[in-house]
Design a protein around this nucleic acid. Structure first.
Lengths: 95, 95
DNA sequence: ATCATGTGTAAATAATATCTTACAGGTGTA
DNA sequence: TACACCTGTAAGATATTATTTACACATGAT
């Protein structure tokens, strides 16, 4: 989850969805100003982390639109919460 | 700051310092089980993000020990706080 | 048929991050 | 002198992430 948020693009994506509400991929790509394939990749990472969810819908004119919206996640980051969370890290495995 | 915490090693470093208190580089490397140069690199990133601070001290037998300790940082991660924080991201600059 | 819209993904490249190894210097003690 | 501990960093290899470009497929309208 932290890795998913450690990227300016993805922060902006979450911020845009949180502020402007749900949106579909192509439109979101235009608003943020990045290419659609790149946005698609970032959305995949955000969805894998549970920060956004997608729902396929049909527009009035019959086109398939994949709408994304932000989930109501919450995480507090302090030395204490990290000490607690670090216990769930496998012994000495990385990445 | 998010980038600094998006790494298992660095999470463990923060957790170890938060739980066991201040420690110097070589000793911390032994406790965590990673090489000293690698720990040094991660400590640099954590310090640059303001998550830890260092202080050079002299041990009783005259050796220079660089002690690190965690700061009392705090950050709440929700869609709303991210929307707020995203405003401070430069227009369309990355990384 | 062609164009404009939407979807997805694969492949190649570019840019970062991570990690190891090796070096250089310091102090104190045997 | 040699060894044990401490410090730092630079160079190179490896791994991961980010980004672009190109492709394939679908629908509705011209």
């Amino acid at each position: 989850m932290l890795a998913a948020l450690a990227n300016p693009h993805r922060l902006r994506i979450v911020a845009t969805l949180a502020t402007g509400g749900r949106n579909y991929v192509s439109q979101l790509a235009r608003e943020i100003g990045i290419s659609r394939p790149l946005l698609h990749l970032h959305l995949q990472k955000l969805e894998a982390a549970g920060l956004v969810v997608s729902q396929l819908e049909l527009s009035p004119d019959g086109k398939a639109l994949n709408y994304f919206e932000v989930t109501d996640f919450g995480l507090e980051l302090t030395p204490a919460t990290i000490a607690q969370a670090a216990k769930s890290l496998t012994a000495h495995s990385e990445q």
